[in-house]
């Protein structure tokens, strides 16, 4: 293979770019769609079906989300490996941000893999599944609920801090004032995103969807659904 000039530079800037463009935009869309759950199961399932019905959806998922995510993760591991993690006493706040940006990557990766495999890949196989009811069942498990909350908060922090530092990396915020303003705006974006995601979980609580119980039971009995799979696994473990 011929040596690509400025390979590390290009990869590092691509890492920054893939964090901002597909990921932040996708998060905003995802959490917005989740929030339909606050208007009821039907509205949420409609919204989810609408997105699933996008033209070229499989191409968007593979080339617009999957590959950029995979690259961001792979190159991110290299970046994490190249850093030092002692906190410098003169600069605790910014130094902690640097460390947390790298530390949060691990819960995010664990959550992302779990979430995508269970909800998108396994769940997506069956066509007549009730996504809302599935999520009600997921959140009924307190451990999974906590896992989701941690995953969401870490993702939103990683995203917000990433926006602020990318602005410096690309040379957008050159002076201290603009860096502070960008930091505040990024924090706002992070708070709005996590607020939207966490608030929308209310729409998946069993109290909010008493009719979900029936759908859950039906899915647990239907072999093509992920709930059936999880239920069978539970059976195996027990």
């Amino acid at each position: 293979m011929p040596e690509v000039p400025y390979k590390e530079f290009i990869l590092r800037r691509l890492h920054s770019l893939t964090g901002i463009v597909p990921m932040t935009v996708f998060l905003a869309e995802h959490f917005w769609t989740n929030s339909y759950a606050l208007q009821g199961a039907e509205r949420f399932n409609e919204a989810a079906d609408h997105i699933r019905g996008f033209p070229y959806i499989i191409l968007i998922e593979i080339f617009g989300l999957g590959l950029p995510f995979a690259f961001h993760i792979a190159y991110g591991i290299k970046i994490i490996y190249s850093g030092d993690y002692t906190i410098y006493a003169n600069n605790p706040a910014k130094n902690w941000m640097y460390v947390l940006q790298r530390v949060t990557a691990f819960p995010i990766l664990a959550f992302l893999v779990f979430h995508v495999i269970t909800i998108r890949i396994l769940h997506g196989i069956g066509d007549d599944v009730d996504l809302h009811a599935t999520m009600v069942d997921v959140f009924a498990n307190k451990f999974l609920l906590a896992f989701y909350v941690v995953g969401i908060v870490c993702t939103c922090f990683h995203c917000a801090n990433g926006i602020a530092t990318a602005a410096i990396t690309w040379g957008l915020t050159v002076g201290p004032t603009s860096q502070k303003v960008a930091g505040a705006v990024a924090a706002g974006v992070g708070l709005v995103l996590s607020g939207m995601a966490l608030w929308s979980i209310r729409g998946f609580m069993p109290e909010a969807a008493p009719e979900a119980a029936e759908a859950i039971e039906a899915m647990k009995a239907a072999p093509e659904t992920v709930l059936y799979l999880i239920e069978s696994l539970r059976g195996v473990i027990a």
């Binding site: 590390e8 590092r12 410098y88 003169n90 600069n91 910014k94 130094n95 941000m97 640097y98 530092t165």
Partner: peptide, 19 residues
């Protein structure tokens, strides 16, 4: 600066400016 060890290696910990 785009070559080996160039500006892209900065991780934005901002310890330099404090030190």
């Amino acid at each position: 600066m785009m070559g080996t060890g160039g500006i892209h290696e900065c991780g934005n910990a901002q310890n330099c400016v404090a030190a």
